[in-house]
């Protein structure tokens, strides 16, 4: 298979920061006014901009990401239906750029889940009891094992999470998705010929 390699992901071991909210939409993750750019980097400072900063640009005390103790956390823990709303991939870019390598939630919106998987940001949907435990233990170090598709922490039994099999294979092996699609060019040619397209 002629594919350009990306960096494989096998295990993520990092501390969590907890944002205990359901239905976190992509307008909160990155407000639209930061989308007028032609680049795909530099979004970290705008992550959760209106929750992190007040109208004068000062950090809002009480917002989890502003707590110095959460600095360096690599896993964001949120509630149900994370990433709903707009299709903006900038949301995944901003989380990645800030330093997150995974988001753990009760569930994910479809487009956000896709966008995250394409940017090496692992969407980890865990069962309710595991999510409740993680929410109650902010800052804990978690181990996300993509091979076993489990999330574990000291004091938390490994919780299973679903990953689309091809996305898992692709991430584990550093397979580039566009490269894979291009490798199917023969089939695409044949399809176009068959319908006179």
């Amino acid at each position: 298979m002629d594919v350009t390699a990306t960096t494989p992901i096998r295990t993520i071991r990092a501390r969590t920061v907890v944002l205990a909210a359901d239905d976190v939409d992509t307008d909160q993750i990155i407000p639209a006014r930061f989308l007028t750019t032609t680049r795909r980097d530099g979004f970290g400072d705008a992550l959760f901009a209106d929750w992190r900063f007040d109208g004068e640009g000062q950090p809002r005390p009480g917002f989890a990401l502003n707590d110095p103790q959460t600095r360096g956390a690599g896993v964001l823990v949120a509630g149900r239906n994370f990433g709903c709303g707009s299709s903006r991939e900038h949301a995944a870019w901003a989380l990645r750029d800030y330093g997150f390598r995974a988001v753990v939630a009760g569930s994910f919106a479809d487009i956000f889940r896709n966008n995250a998987l394409k940017n090496g940001l692992l969407p980890v949907a865990v069962p309710g009891d595991a999510l409740a435990w993680l929410t109650a233990h902010p800052g804990v170090e978690v181990t996300i094992d993509l091979e076993a598709t489990t999330l574990a922490a000291p004091g938390l039994a490994p919780a299973p999470f679903p990953v689309e099999p091809f996305a898992r294979y692709r991430l584990l092996n550093g397979i580039d998705e566009l490269g894979y699609l291009l490798s199917r060019s023969g089939a695409i040619d044949a399809y176009e010929r068959s319908r006179g397209a």
Binding site: E89, L181, I188
Partner: peptide, 17 residues
């Protein structure tokens, strides 16, 4: 709707996974 990476896939291959 699709994300920007997928926009690139469609531009290059007219297809999506």
């Amino acid at each position: 709707g699709i994300g920007t990476t997928e926009v690139g896939h469609v531009l290059a291959t007219q297809c999506l996974l």
